[in-house]
Design a protein around this nucleic acid. Sequence first.
DNA 1: GTGAAAGCGCTAACAA
DNA 2: TTGTTAGCGCTTTCAC
Lengths: 350, 350
Amino acid sequence: MTFGAAKLSNTSAQDPRRTLTLRDVSEASGVSEMTVSRVLRNRGDVSEATRERVLQAARTLGYVPNKIAGALASQRVNLVGVVIPSLSNMVFPEVMTGISEVLEDTGLQPVVGVTNYSPDREEAVIYEMLSWRPTGLIVAGLEHSEAAQAMLAQAGVPIVEIMDIDGTPVDSAVGISHRRAGRQMAEAIIAAGYRRIAFLGTQMPNDHRARKRLEGFEEALAKAGLALADREFYSGGSALLKGREMTEAVLARNPDVDFLYYSNDMIGAGGLLYCLEKGLDVPGKIGLAGFNGVELLDGLPRRLATMDACRLEIGRRAAEIIAGKPHLGVVGGEVIELFPTLQPGDTIRH
Amino acid sequence: MTFGAAKLSNTSAQDPRRTLTLRDVSEASGVSEMTVSRVLRNRGDVSEATRERVLQAARTLGYVPNKIAGALASQRVNLVGVVIPSLSNMVFPEVMTGISEVLEDTGLQPVVGVTNYSPDREEAVIYEMLSWRPTGLIVAGLEHSEAAQAMLAQAGVPIVEIMDIDGTPVDSAVGISHRRAGRQMAEAIIAAGYRRIAFLGTQMPNDHRARKRLEGFEEALAKAGLALADREFYSGGSALLKGREMTEAVLARNPDVDFLYYSNDMIGAGGLLYCLEKGLDVPGKIGLAGFNGVELLDGLPRRLATMDACRLEIGRRAAEIIAGKPHLGVVGGEVIELFPTLQPGDTIRH
DNA sequence: GTGAAAGCGCTAACAA
DNA sequence: TTGTTAGCGCTTTCAC
């Protein structure tokens, strides 16, 4: 079978159901495939006349270019993989917003993969994404399975690990120090005069950022000669409701606790609602603080103390790193540390 | 240049930075590319001995297959596009969970695209997705630009429009009738004896589902000889806070209103918190209801009346349709209507 | 059980 | 400005 014959077997007469190819547009417009390709990509000089003819034909046929073939031929893929643990809490959607904002004008498209805080899922998602040879990869966190670590290191494209900078990135990193964030909150709490402090958080061994915040928090307590008065963990279910339940449990067990430090704003909000309902004196008798600075807090009866995790900015900076590295590949990664601001709100006395 | 020479120019000695190919694994293991490919895909019979050698070589090199080339050659792509308007509210993440659950065991991977309720963005995202020739496409809503509609109809892969069934799908659809949902809520409110009813919602001309709920709601009011006593819209910002503000505005303008119907649970929750703070008699003097059945409501001081939008189930069924259609292509679409349950909670009197 | 050849639909590079 | 040629890295098909 000759080349020509093979190509001929590809005409639209053969199978009306198959998707259109460049060749169909070429035949319909009477212009070579190459020129059609040029028109459709706005590349190179094409006369206005041919340009019009081609666009007309493409539009009439309803042609949608095959990016698979294009990517293989050009060795370029306009995709940026984003690997995150969850969409359910409010934090990652905002990171995505930052990423999308920056990528919007670059022709790059974010592609999201969710790991549910499972290292195995993460490994699988990273493998899957790299197999599409994206322009870059944004991955939440610095902790990965050994195999995942190896794949990232070998990938040959910019990798940006986000959210956290307490550790060693494979390539670039953009985030905050959660250990420091925990420390700062503890210092603020201690400075406000609270002494019998409890921690309430998620039971997620793979949420390394929450873990680091707690470590930093306890570190600062220890430095002041204090230790956690109590700790309570949960997993699954409505965070707001869990916040209530945990708070109730801690206060029942330990009525003289004077501060509740929550690993995130959602359970903190639940705790706050509970305390207000019980008529507790907040922040006089008992103080509360969360983490993330989620928008939701604006609508609560009282402003929960929190720390802004710089989510939007993290997304933006990460995307900028990917978008800004044409094909350098070799350049060493950069580490960008952002600094969250402590928002004392109305639940820490001053 | 001969074919052989061309291939030789591709050896790893050439450029240590380029990503690995099948050929590298072939050379490292001393087995033909074809057999390597078979091993890596678990296809066809391969002797245990060669199998081991190949896997060993692949692992050592850190080879990640190039799916672009694979997809082009096999005309198969294990991707399912999911086009949704937003990640910020709680509704779409749950749909994604349903989709992921079902696709997990099928080898198919969801790829998310976000439109921010913009028809133009939607058109662009659909175009982009189709250009990767996915196995199927899941799109939120039945309303699309003419061009988008045409692309979907031409796509040649199963298309599932989700969330809504009040309209004509391009192919398949899974969702609820928002018009009916609005009607049902109105009927329940009227039956409970409320008469001076206000609507509070988002100002989003492209949120067709919210619009349809309101239409159904007003339709049922009209049938009972009633009309909306007031209406208030917002856009942007913290939904919880907006819910408060809108509620305050409505009550200031119209103190004798006895029911507040919100277009979503988040603003409804804000309104509920406001009413409780003001010491209003809920549900005696004033009733409230939202829409969606979000988990967050579980943690509120009182249960807001709502309607479950069947989000998880919608995601599951949509994914099943895609996963269940091998390559039929031609078969007509199916329409699956789900029926939300009204949860009266504690904010409608009975 | 294994390998060789052909080509998926596009684009880079060069020729005209 | 336009066209021709040679692949991109894999899988299909068929031969051994």
